[in-house]
Design a binder for these strands. Structure first.
Lengths: 238, 238
DNA sequence: CGGACCATTGATAATTGTCAAAATTCGTGG
DNA sequence: CCACGAATTTTGACAATTATCAATGGTCCG
């Protein structure tokens, strides 16, 4: 295998073509930028970022998933995002020297592409399209946060459980003739920390849903949903 | 008063100089853009935007405050943002045709400056600095949302009350030799909808804090805080 | 001064958190 | 491929917190 062909393979398999925000670059520039990118790999459970640490790069997830979370005053962790292929973080620190506002930990083996802040900034000034795409992506993420805030503000936990099942079905669900199978990105404790409730409460709610025949627990990380309409009914009008 | 001088006065008093995202424009361009801007006024209680409505402009708040909120399945409203002078909304819809994701209602008399989507887009391509500023501003707003999500995920309502008091002290507080006076942007019901708890719970918690000598209610919308450190202690480690 | 609106307080019910024990699942190594 | 131990999850009982409903008390404004 020649070095050059390996390099092309890189370009296809690494960040470039996976990351929407870079997809407007032409081949020439892609090559230039490729040289600036540093790669990192993390094992499951490893930390990609600690809350309050200084940051100097924008990190793009190339493979795997990671959770972003904050530690709450009462000692839990509140999960904010689940990053997967093509997502990025560190952009908040692009134009200020503020420290990280959350921690990021790998949920699976993760590969990242990192770009130093200064270099990324240059990119933005050179390609307004990239900035425009980032604005669009940040908009999506904000909408997600706004929904989460609405959802977590709902006092009825049943609604919240319904919402999270809908969300996960969209992101991690596969269709089957039995129904929809959700591959949960994390354990029950993760679900609890995403919802902002106690682990045991999640267990109880899931058990109840299983008794009612609305979901079926295949194993700790897979759930079968025969009829998605019933979940929507539980989630309420969203 | 001559028309021309009035116009200059406009430039000073209207959006241009109040809005950080436009402040990088030179005078020439400011003038051009001024012609594109349409102004609106709203009375207290009037709606600036309805959730799920189509949008075609970016709206910049020039005077007054407004709340952005979503209706929850259980019939409450969850407040997401309090917009004041210099804040903007509608940017999510800049590059997609998605409908509004929240409602916006005036808390006081409000004046806005509106820019049509297409025209705003052109601005972004012409001035990458504006896009960069918007990214920065969106980053700030996301950080605020992330904090809110963390805060509301905390099961201990006392912590949450503490957090909101800290936040409001920063945004709406004035120093006094008696301590800090917070001018609440809205009623108890508003506070409750911001926190995601029942109105009565807010009353009870405030009463309790007053009994403990930590706050002093001057009237329905003003609170005196003699010692901010005690509030920080209640909010917990943030 | 009066009326409408908003805030407070009380009593009770419902929900969820907490702690502890039992059951299940998962991964590893034989 | 099975078995074992560790980790995670489920379940139960109880305590704590908050929502709800209803009535009272205040405040603001014309």
């Amino acid at each position: 295998m020649v070095a050059h062909s390996k390099c092309n393979r890189c370009m296809d398999r690494l960040c470039m073509h996976k990351v929407p925000i870079l997809s407007s670059l032409d081949k020439e520039d892609l090559k230039k930028i490729m040289k600036l990118i540093r790669h990192h790999e993390y094992e499951k459970g490893e930390m990609l970022l600690f809350d309050k640490d200084a940051m100097n790069s924008v990190v793009i997830i190339n493979e795997g998933t990671a959770k972003a979370y904050k530690n709450t005053p009462d000692g839990r962790e509140q999960i904010l995002y689940i990053f997967s292929e093509g997502d990025f973080f560190g952009e908040q620190n692009l134009f200020s020297n503020q420290a990280a506002t959350y921690s990021v930990q790998a949920l699976q083996p993760v590969k990242t592409c990192n770009l130093y802040r200064d270099q990324f900034q240059e990119l933005l000034y050179k390609y307004p399209e990239i900035a425009v795409k980032i604005i669009g992506e940040l908009g999506n993420r904000m909408t997600r946060l706004e929904n989460a805030l609405q959802s977590i503000g709902v006092r009825n936990v049943d609604n919240r459980i319904g919402s999270i099942l809908l969300e996960f079905a969209q992101k991690y669900g596969t269709r089957d003739r039995m129904g929809t199978i959700i591959h949960l990105p994390f354990s029950r404790e993760g679900v609890a920390n995403y919802l902002g409730v106690a682990r045991e409460t999640v267990s109880r709610k899931f058990s109840q849903l299983e008794n009612d025949g609305i979901i079926q627990s295949l194993n700790n990380k897979e759930i079968l949903i025969p009829d998605m309409n019933k979940i929507e009914a539980i989630a309420g009008t969203n």
